[in-house]
């Protein structure tokens, strides 16, 4: 008898917990299914739009690759998307239809704006930008995105150098060619660092590579690519290097790159001129350094060194400003010796 009573009690408690609207287990399970379906749908759209922008042909296989899902599952997904009027199959080709195009553009815009937000307005570590943006891109409404863009000063490029598309219009093609395809000893500039797949992207940013950096390939082999970027040498496997897009830099000689100097290397007694700030210096930090006078053409010299060796105080524009070593490593300079030469 008491056993039945217990079971009945359990049912009374468990039933609402199971079917309670919005908070019950069932509702949560359905919500999570709907969420993951939405994520897959939007990720697929994103992939197709990027392919179209870069004159590549999206296929079932390439979508499955981008989503890291089985082909059967992806086929069902695409069929569902077609039924909803997002994509079309014609002549055996996968194409975006107008609503699909709009949605894909929105998701990419959301992603890139969120990354810009993280980069410029928060102290979130660079390695986390992509992951956080990958989640936010599915959550933000077009209104929120417009407000965010406005608050950020309507940026035109995200921290990886990619164009942030307008709410309407086309996605610009990603400029440049893969780093692996460039000639040896030809200075080029990084225009884009591909953020998919994430593992490769994390490795590239961990090496300190950023869009806007000047690069020169030193050695190429099927196993590895050795190149010079931002004052030091890097080695990458070709699969990694090909996620970096570069474009030619005509007015530079390789020697200019190798001889790049940074403020952190300035010795006491030397005088130097500021050439510019590294692209890795962003947001509030970049603006502050500019406002303090670290603009191209400014003459700098070491004034004081802290007893522990860091920070160092520099004379700049008639004032004395202390910078930490990492910051000084972001200011490109030319010492007098080189100016004379």
């Amino acid at each position: 008898m008491s056993g039945w009573l217990f079971l009945a009690g359990l049912a009374v408690v468990a039933f609402p917990a199971l079917v309670w609207p919005r908070r019950g287990l069932l509702a949560r399970w359905r919500a999570s299914l709907a969420w993951s379906a939405r994520v897959h749908r939007e990720d697929a759209l994103k992939h197709i739009l990027k392919c179209e922008a870069n004159q590549e042909v999206p296929t079932l296989i390439s979508v499955a690759g981008a989503l890291q899902k089985g082909q059967r599952q992806v086929a069902a997904l695409l069929a569902d998307m077609e039924a909803h009027g997002l994509v079309s199959f014609s002549d055996g080709r996968l194409r975006l239809r107008e609503p699909g195009h709009e949605l894909a553009l929105h998701v990419i815009r959301a992603h890139r704006l969120w990354e810009s937000y993280l980069a410029d307005q928060t102290g979130v570590a660079e390695a986390e930008w992509h992951r956080q943006a990958d989640r936010q891109e599915h959550l933000l409404s077009p209104q929120q995105i417009s407000a965010l863009a406005a608050a950020l000063g309507n940026p035109t490029r995200d921290p990886h150098g990619d164009a942030i598309p307008d709410a309407t219009g086309e996605l610009p093609a990603e400029p440049g060619q893969p780093l692996g395809a460039t000639e040896i000893n030809t200075p080029v500039m990084i225009t884009h660092i591909e953020d998919e797949p994430e593992a490769i992207y994390a490795q590239l940013t961990a090496q300190g590579l950023r869009a806007g950096m000047k690069v020169c390939v030193l050695e190429k082999s099927p196993e590895r690519i050795r190149f010079w970027a931002d004052g030091r040498e890097h080695v990458l496997a070709p699969i990694f290097a090909n996620n970096i897009a570069v474009s030619a830099l005509r007015e530079f000689r390789p020697a200019d790159l190798f001889e790049e100097e940074y403020l952190a290397g300035l010795q006491r007694g030397q005088v130097a001129k500021v050439i510019g700030l590294s692209p890795a210096c962003r947001g509030a930090e970049r603006r502050r350094l500019l406002d303090l006078g670290f603009v191209p053409g400014t003459s700098v010299e070491v004034d004081l060194v802290s007893p522990t060796g860091d920070p160092t105080a520099y004379r700049v524009r008639g004032t004395v400003v202390a910078l930490r070593r990492e910051q000084a490593g972001l200011v490109r300079i030319a010492t007098e010796r080189r100016i004379a030469a």
């Binding site: 406002d291 303090l292 006078g293 700049v316 524009r317 008639g318 004032t319």
Partner: peptide
């Protein structure tokens, strides 16, 4: 007056 240049910014 001692840091005129920066202040003129």
């Amino acid at each position: 007056a001692t840091r005129l240049e920066r202040n003129l910014n």
